[in-house]
Simulated assay, not measured.
Amino acid sequence: MVFAHDTEASLLSAVELVNSAEDPDTLTETAQLAEFFVRHVYTGAHTGDTAELAAVRALRAPLRRLLTSDRDTAVALVNDILAEHRAIPQLVCHGEVDYHVHAVPADAPLSVRIAVETAMAMIDLIRTDDLSRLSICADDNCDGLVLDLSRNRSRRYCSTACGNRNAVAAYRARQR
């Protein structure tokens, strides 16, 4: 199944945000948050201050719970997020991006926009019963999340580093 651009973008952003809490923490400075904002093409309010950084960092655990939940739990969490922020989905078009869904105003805090956009993306995964596209990294020493958007669902590692580490370990084990 091919998801809409905004669904994929929101899921990729959420997975990166959750994985930023892994050792080493890659979201500790406002400059890193600014890079995250640009890399994931967020629009709207972005104060870039330490309060915004703290609010976005605080999302990591709740989003991890959402992205690793079973279907029924994910439904409840999505509904809670949308209700808490009074999300009203609307089609918008701005910049280089064609029509897509926003559910909170552009002046909503970045942490709210991330939470709601992730919840909206999870709606697509839940409705298509495709939660298996989200998993935990197959590396025994890593708890990172994996978003598998491949056609054959073959992605097992959260990063190239984890994949390479396991490939080298397997190679060395075969050489023994």
Rank of each mutant, 00 (worst) to 15 (best):
V112Q: 12
R57D: 02
L17Q: 00
L66F: 15
D107Y: 04
N19L: 03
S150D: 10
Q32K: 03
L59W: 06
T68E: 13
T43P: 05
L91F: 15
A4N: 07
S135P: 12
G95F: 03
A55Q: 13
A87I: 04
A167M: 12
C142N: 02
S135Y: 07
S132F: 14
E22G: 05
L59N: 04
A21S: 09
A121H: 07
H94N: 14
D140Q: 12
F3N: 03
V92G: 01
E22Q: 12
D70W: 03
H46K: 10
L110G: 00
G163E: 04
M120W: 03
R127S: 13
L67C: 08
S111I: 05
L67M: 09
R174V: 13
A161H: 08
A170G: 14
A74I: 05
Q32W: 03
T50R: 15
A76P: 09
G95K: 01
L27F: 05
R39P: 00
D23A: 06
P62A: 08
R172L: 15
S13V: 00
Y157W: 14
L110I: 02
D80W: 10
G95L: 02
D23R: 08
V15R: 00
H100D: 01
Y157I: 05
P62E: 07
S111T: 08
A9R: 10
R113G: 00
T68S: 10
L145W: 09
S135N: 03
A21K: 02
L149H: 08
A76Y: 11
L63H: 01
S20I: 00
R151F: 08
T30G: 02
P89H: 12
A55H: 13
S135A: 13
P62Y: 00
I114C: 06
E35V: 10
A14W: 03
N79K: 08
L82N: 11
T7F: 04
V15D: 02
A106E: 07
Y157M: 10
D143Q: 10
T28R: 15
R57P: 02
T128S: 15
F3R: 11
I81F: 02
L125V: 10
L77T: 12
D49G: 13
L145V: 09
A106G: 12
L125G: 01
S132T: 14
L77D: 05
S10H: 01
N164K: 08
R176S: 15
R57V: 14
R174E: 04
A34M: 08
A138E: 11
D139G: 06
T7N: 09
T26Y: 01
I114W: 06
A58N: 15
P62D: 03
A34G: 12
L134Q: 08
H5C: 04
V168S: 04
C158G: 13
R165G: 09
Q32E: 11
